[in-house]
């Protein structure tokens, strides 16, 4: 139960104020979800350099958990460039050129890994958009695109790890924000687990992320993967997905969850409510449209070679 927002700057210059834009958009729909807020932010990748975020529990165990994380990284010959303990999280920047999925699964067992990517950085915690910004300085983030989420916890706990966005556990640079409920969750999850995928939470949004990542890994385009989602997933959903250079949406056939988009030459912005889009353009009546039920689409950055 929540609100979602996403924005992509189409031009190749990759220094847009993504953090600020998403803070405004999420603040605009905070009424839809006061429990927690999260951001998936993308900047231009430095090949071989990854950012990892872990959720660390409070207490004396933090030091031990961090030691454990570093020890395992060392086993994988990952080189730590930078680290920071902030809010409920521990951030690490590393250089790594081995098997990323293997590393990711290994790190999962060491601690609660909430994000991994060359471009992607997921910042999420309990509280509102501005609360998160106060702790994590989201407004300073400059980049290319991002998605965000405000959450009203209904069936699972209010905790940083239950917040969105979700990354596709095991896959770098894929994130998802979702409003709705996947009703064939366990059936779909069991299918993916049988094929060796690992789930970090019981949240249905993580399922969508892993489902999409699996398709992408097998060479399916994001667009086709979204199309398959509408076929395969039951329930009510409106979600946004982002990869290194794309952003996309899918909406269920019953259109039970809201979504509205605005597009011009420079940006594509999508949100649960127009009030979030208007936060980007105060005082301006926007030419918006609503995606139809059972539809999907993707937008790509115009990357120069």
């Amino acid at each position: 139960m929540c609100g979602i927002a996403g924005i992509l700057y189409k031009d190749t210059v990759a220094k847009a104020d993504i953090g600020k834009a998403l803070i405004s958009m999420l603040d605009g729909c905070q009424h839809r979800g006061p429990d927690s807020t999260g951001f998936a932010l993308y900047h231009d990748a430095v090949p071989g350099q990854y950012r990892l975020r872990f959720i660390v529990d409070e207490g004396d165990d933090i030091a031990a958990a961090i030691d454990d994380i570093k020890e395992r990284l060392a086993e994988f010959q990952a080189q730590v460039i930078d680290e920071e303990l902030v809010g409920a999280g521990f951030r690490l920047d590393i250089r790594f050129d081995g098997d990323l999925q293997k590393l990711a699964y290994e790190m999962e067992h060491a601690a609660k890994l909430s994000s991994i990517g060359e471009s992607l950085d997921i910042i999420k915690d309990v509280g509102g958009a501005h609360d998160i910004d106060d702790v994590y300085s989201v407004a300073r983030f400059q980049g290319t695109h991002g998605i965000g989420h405000v959450r009203l916890a209904t069936e699972s706990d209010v905790a940083p790890e239950a917040s969105h966005p979700f990354w596709a556990t095991g896959f770098a640079d894929i994130a998802i924000v979702h409003n709705g409920q996947i009703t064939n969750y366990y059936k779909m999850r069991r299918r993916l687990e049988k094929r060796g995928y690992f789930f970090n939470t019981d949240n249905d949004s993580e399922l969508i992320a892993v489902y999409l990542a699996d398709k992408l890994k097998n060479g399916v385009t994001l667009k086709d993967a979204l199309k398959a989602t509408i076929e395969d997933m039951d329930g009510t959903f409106s979600f946004l997905v982002s990869t290194k250079d794309e952003i996309g949406y899918a909406k269920d056939r019953l259109a039970a969850k809201p979504m509205v988009k605005y597009e011009d030459d420079n940006i594509i912005a999508i949100a649960s409510e127009e009030v979030s889009l208007n936060k980007l353009f105060p005082g301006r009546a926007l030419d918006t449209s609503e995606p139809a039920p059972g539809t999907f689409n993707t937008w790509q950055r115009s990357i120069s070679a």
Binding site: E273, E274, G283, R284
Partner: peptide, 27 residues
């Protein structure tokens, strides 16, 4: 002015006046 798609504009009005919203309104 500046409605910016905010919700609940004009809710509960029981008089026959005219309200002009210069922009977009929300829910």
């Amino acid at each position: 002015l500046n409605p910016d798609a905010r919700h609940h504009i004009g809710v509960g009005l029981t008089h026959p006046i005219k309200v002009t919203v210069r922009g977009s309104a929300g829910y």
